[in-house]
Write a protein that binds this DNA or RNA. Structure first.
Length: 807
RNA sequence: GCACCAGUGGCGGAAUUGGCAGACGCAACGGACUCAAAAUCCGUCGAGAGCAAUCUCAUGUGGGUUCAAGUCCCACCUGGUGCACCA
């Protein structure tokens, strides 16, 4: 009888071996084929590793281990995205330096990852808070600045009236400050911005060249939201002034019955003495300032607004005088901050017009019954034809759009314009725990970059990490740090005191892994050329529109600068689903449904946890935790362990199970590539069941199983391989091969149907001819074919369907 | 409100992409082993009818396409994730 399976001793033993032998370090031998597998590096929070983390890590650990067995030089690195708000808040509360907090958290995370047996290349660990790392983050920023892609702009921030600090969106709960519960308002502040919009088209087009799951591509495209429309100038009556709007529906210009401008629109202050109800306007604007853009959305059904009394506009195509309203459903941050409202053909304008009794003029006609302007706007464009629109009458919507655009350009009252939903990236944070922005502001010379030779611009020690009373970063209180000489003119100047957002360090970390200790460049050209692009990048769906897009933007910029050799950073992108609590809810302390991975490792072992997380369900969907499921996986590993008791000392595969072994190799190999880890494990369970069924497993069969299972459960499989008498390691073996011919059984069972209803089954030879199958099928069905045969269908190896018409 | 995704036994989930719905696991039930329990092993296991062979109904709801639909189309309901009312 075999010894008991003790996961404690087995896992400790092999983790020690891997630490000593370092079999998972990427090689610098650039003649070998490479494979770069990447998982999103974690934010080392104070809570330690969550059971959600091992899901993507195990998945790509499996891929990496398999690739090594297939002869690739694999880079599978890990690091820390360690700047950020929670660490800073913890530091403020407990009066500990955020760097100390970070160090402790990183140590804890690292121990936990180690206990799970991942094959990370720890020699290449990076940390975004390390000055040797953020030196290069600052270097990239300076490049962006020098290319005109970083600029300053007045932007509204969330402002807590009581704490007197700027807040992240996350810290605003129900319009109130998360810490003190006071109301949060929008306060305008000058912020650093990055012109990601300049790369909008490149970011869309680049998606054609990469292998991302469709969901990710769709979401990125929708987020960038390219639209082709027109800007149109409306004259303001009796004033030398025009109001420019952006519209995707210039064809409906004849139906514009009023205009709406954003409450923040500059026109309002410019002509405040012409506005008779300025008090009401100001009041409305203050109310709007209390809402975030998102809250404005939530109130979509109940439109609010105030008309500008004293100022009206002229519709340029028909010279009609129309009123101008302000409403918070129009945002200053999209288009021009002003719209022409066409209530007949836009649902938001329709709701607004209904509420305030504004005229609704139909200018597009649809098919019989499709248009009911008593109930709703008619927004369909593919079937409509222009009416009530002067020279556009009779045209289709598409033709109307082109003709009116030509008209606008001819008369110089507008022009074609491409717009994007995507907005420029707000890059300033009024925080301590981030990369200092390496810019000096001089009264005479403006914004002057810090010289590259002075990088890294180190984060100075401060006494308090709290932002200052006027909303500046705590760095602003450090006079000795802030006051410098202008690098340009030598006069008195001040350093920028805002820091970068957490997204900065994570936008390029995969480049640093390639050459993490390089002091001359962010990575050597040679190494970049060999390792890029990342072959497979897996991460959370929640990062699709921010992190993933930001890092593609930076990479494309670096490509244009000649720093990196590929235009796209990641060749393949996949996403994993969340792990929910046993109750099907998101795990959270307040719900009390949090599972600590340490407990599972202690009680069941890392191999069991890894197996379970892969078996839990479809990789890209959310799945609920189940302790019972964990036990089932432990039982499976024990059954694998105890196969020792029915081992027969024969090389090769037994007659009984040869086909199944080949089938299993085939299935596991392809499932591992296609994120179908759950069915790969199910296939291995079936194989183990088959061995017990015949009460024997040959040495050849056992070793194949051990090799297939190794990427999922690396410790137990190494131990079993060594028990089988080998001095070598499973990780040094080649990935098992299968023979396609041997994956098919000699006889196949197919289904017999009459009119699509299954009536029985039939055993046929694997290559039996169609005629023979059909005649056997008809014979077997006999009287169940109760009528005249109309049609006979045979899907090879699957099904026979006899279509019958009753007599 | 907008975008994306999902809905299959008591439960987690399979289904080679239009071809025998329910693989694999969990739970439950019956049996073996045991003084007993746990563990382990062997069996049964969508619902309903029938002694039976079999038959009928079943993939959120309602329609449709097809020889054949969990899978494709239309409308709706419910849940999840993200969000910046995108004109």
């Amino acid at each position: 009888m075999s010894e008991m399976y003790n996961h404690h001793t087995v896992e400790k033993k092999w983790q020690k071996v891997w630490d000593d032998e370092k079999p998972f370090s990427a090689s610098e031998d650039y003649s070998k084929p490479k494979y770069y597998a990447l998982v999103e590096f974690p934010y080392p929070s104070g809570q330690g590793l969550h059971v959600g983390h091992p899901r993507p890590y195990t998945a790509l650990d499996i891929v990496s281990r398999k690739r090594r067995m297939q002869g690739y030089n694999v880079l599978f690195p890990m690091g820390w995205d360690a700047f950020g708000l929670p660490t800073e808040n913890y530091a403020i509360k407990n009066k500990i330096h955020p760097a100390v907090v970070t160090k402790n958290n990183v140590e804890r995370f690292k121990d936990q990852l180690h206990s799970l047996g991942y094959s990370f290349d720890w020699d290449r660990e990076v940390n975004t808070t390390d000055p040797e790392y953020y030196k290069w983050t600052q270097w990239i920023f300076l490049k962006l600045f020098k290319e005109g892609l970083a600029y300053k702009k007045e932007m509204p921030i969330n402002w807590c009236t009581s704490c007197k600090v700027g807040l992240a969106n996350e810290e605003v709960v129900d319009g109130k400050c998360e810490r003190c519960g006071s109301p949060v308002v929008r306060k305008v502040k000058s912020e650093w911005m990055l012109k990601i919009t300049e790369y909008a088209d490149k970011l869309i087009d680049g998606l054609n060249d990469v292998d991302y799951i469709e969901r990710v591509k769709t979401q990125q495209k929708n987020w960038i939201g390219r639209s082709e429309g027109a800007e149109v100038d409306f004259k303001i009556k009796d004033l030398e002034e025009t109001l420019t709007v952006y519209t995707t529906r210039p064809d409906t210009l004849f139906g514009a019955t009023y205009m709406v401008i954003s409450p923040e629109h500059p026109l309002i202050d410019k002509y405040k003495d012409k506005i008779n109800n300025f008090d009401a306007i100001v009041e409305y604007r203050e109310m709007a300032a209390r809402k975030s853009d998102f809250e404005r959305t939530e109130l979509a059904k109940d439109k609010t607004g105030v008309v500008l009394d004293g100022i009206t506009a002229i519709n340029p195509v028909n010279e009609e005088e129309i009123p101008i309203w302000i409403s918070d459903y129009v945002l200053m941050s999209y288009g021009t901050g002003a719209i022409m409202a066409v209530p007949a053909h836009d649902s938001r304008d329709y709701e607004f017009a209904k509420k305030f009794n504004l005229p609704i003029i139909q200018v597009v006609d649809g098919p019989e019954g499709a248009v009911n302007l008593e109930e709703e706007a008619f927004t369909e464009v593919s079937t409509g034809n222009m009416i009530n629109s002067g020279f556009l009458n009779g045209l289709s919507v598409e033709e109307g759009k082109e003709k009116i655009k030509d008209f606008l350009e001819e008369k110089k009252i507008g022009h074609r314009k491409v717009n994007y939903k995507l907005r420029d990236w707000v890059f300033s944070r009024q925080r301590y725990w981030g990369e200092p922005i390496p810019i000096i502001h001089c009264e005479k010379c403006g914004y002057v970059p810090v010289d590259e030779s002075e990088l890294p611009l180190m984060l100075p020690e401060v006494e308090s990490y709290m932002p200052t009373d006027n909303g500046e970063s705590p760095l602003a209180a450090m006079d000795s740090w802030v006051n410098v000489k202008c690098p340009c003119c030598g006069g008195d100047a001040k350093r920028e005191t805002d820091t970068m957002p957490q997204w900065a360090g994570s936008s390029w970390y995969f480049l640093r892994y390639i050459d993490p200790k390089n002091t001359e460049a962010l990575a050597s050209k040679e190494a970049l050329k060999y390792w890029l692009p990342v072959d497979w990048y897996n991460g959370g769906m929640e990062h699709t529109t921010l992190h993933l897009l930001y890092s593609r933007f930076w990479h494309k910029f670096l490509y244009d600068q000649g720093v990196v050799p590929t235009s796209e950073p990641y060749q393949k992108r996949t996403s994993h689903g969340m792990i929910l609590g046993e109750d099907g809810q998101k795990m959270s302390k307040s719900r009390g449904n949090v599972i600590n991975p340490d407990d599972i490792v202690r009680d069941y072992g890392a191999d069991t946890l890894r197996t379970y997380e892969m078996f839990i369900g479809a990789f890209d969907l959310a799945a609920s935790w189940s302790e019972k499921g964990v036990k089932g996986c432990r039982r499976f590993l024990e059954r694998v362990w105890k196969l020792q008791d029915i081992l027969v000392d024969e090389e090769g595969y037994s007659k009984e199970n040869e086909t199944l072994v080949h089938k299993t190799i085939k299935k596991v190999s392809s499932d591992f590539e296609n994120l179908k880890f759950n069915t790969a494990i199910a296939a291995m369970m079936e194989l183990v069941n088959a061995f017990y069924k015949v009460k024997k497993v040959t040495r050849g069969e056992y070793e194949t199983l051990i090799t297939l299972l190794n990427p999922v459960a690396p410790h137990i499989t190494e131990e079993l391989y060594s028990i089988l008498g080998h001095d070598s390691r499973v990780y040094s073996l080649s990935w098992p091969e299968y023979d396609e011919k041997k994956t098919v059984d000699d006889t196949i069972e197919i289904a017999l149907q009459v009119n699509g209803k299954t009536k029985g089954t039939l055993e046929i030879a694997k290559d039996e001819a169609k005629d023979s199958v059909l005649s056997k099928a008809k014979e077997a069905l006999g009287a169940k074919i109760n009528g005249t045969i109309v049609k006979e269908i045979y899907v090879p190896g699957r099904i026979v369907n006899i279509v019958v018409k009753p007599n």
